[in-house]
Design a protein around this nucleic acid. Structure first.
Lengths: 188, 188
DNA sequence: GTCTATAGTATGATAGAC
DNA sequence: GTCTATCATACTATAGAC
């Protein structure tokens, strides 16, 4: 029985994640979360007894899992660096929906949001930086590049592109940044 | 009497701006705004009859004014491009408090925030892009650079650096981005 | 201009029937 | 597991005394 279709909780977390990305932590009210998940406020408390903070934490965990599948995993594959980066770029485009969806690193670092949340997304940020760093190091084994600085700059440009794409509505900004990643990380 | 010191409204807007930058639009409740401004909820409605949205709009206008003074004005000065950019970099460092304070372009583009707000900050974003673009064009009059793309990339890196600095607490990210601006804009 | 008081609504969260 | 009903609190906003 279990495993055949996604459980209510799983689908609920995915819907809640959309909510948080669109409206922010404070903006995603239980009413919105209830509508988005189709669960009813009380049912939400059945799946997430600790309330809103637990929903947000589950959303952050889902992001971590998806990022591992779509970005970090491909970056660590056995193929040549450029192939790995190509897969990661596709994953990033998918994860951020072509620049339309916000990043929790941005969203969950605003305000006095609950204690566990900023730490969780901070961890994801560092994991991505490390993965980019290793890729850049692999691609430049005897060159005098600075993989760490390049990796940080890659995340900086991705986060900035998402902000500016959201603010201006111009999705070419995000697309251009994706296409710049090989250059930023010195992977060719 | 009036004019000697800043009016209550002016100081209130400055305090409210701090609130919005720290907690976001939804997170900055009237209680927080009342505490921060020292005005009392009712007094806030005396200065801003339309309520919270008017306060946020006034904050956005203050940002526009400060940005003109600290960044856009210096960029348009008569000095050589590198001197102008140096002043703008100092202005950016001051405006963003060394990376500690968020950008309204980010904050006010989250959620279903009131109608006038996203448009207002979008305007500021385009104004900065244009100013950077002209500076880069001035500095590369017969070179084959792309001033528009460079200007967009400068804002992208600034916004991204602010996000990542806020999320990680590492202010060197913002400082490094400031020091990269001459390179990004091909101004030397 | 600032205050107290308060309206009316939305919030996060709980209890208990089914 | 989902429902209705409800709690206490916080929210934005208004009215009116001073």
């Amino acid at each position: 029985m279990r495993g055949k279709v996604k459980s209510s909780r799983e689908t609920a977390v995915a819907a809640a994640l959309e909510c948080f990305r669109r409206f922010g932590y404070e903006g995603a009210s239980l009413n919105l979360l209830s509508e988005a998940t189709g669960l009813g406020r009380s049912s939400l408390y059945h799946y997430f007894p600790e309330g809103k903070e637990e929903i947000a934490l589950a959303a952050a965990e889902l992001v971590e899992q998806r990022f591992n599948e779509l970005v970090i995993g491909p970056l660590q594959g056995p193929e040549p660096p450029m192939v790995r980066l190509g897969k990661a770029i596709s994953g990033l485009d998918q994860f951020y929906n072509g620049g339309r969806d916000a990043c929790l690193i941005d969203i969950f670092s605003i305000g006095d949001t609950a204690t566990a949340l900023p730490g969780r997304v901070k961890g994801i940020a560092f994991a991505v930086i490390e993965a980019f760093e290793k890729l850049s190091a692999d691609a430049n084994k005897r060159a005098a590049t600075n993989p760490r600085a390049s990796a940080v700059r890659a995340i900086v440009e991705l986060e900035g592109a998402l902000v500016l794409t959201r603010a201006t509505g111009d999705r070419t900004i995000f697309a251009d940044t994706l296409s710049r990643l090989p250059y930023i990380l010195s992977v060719s």
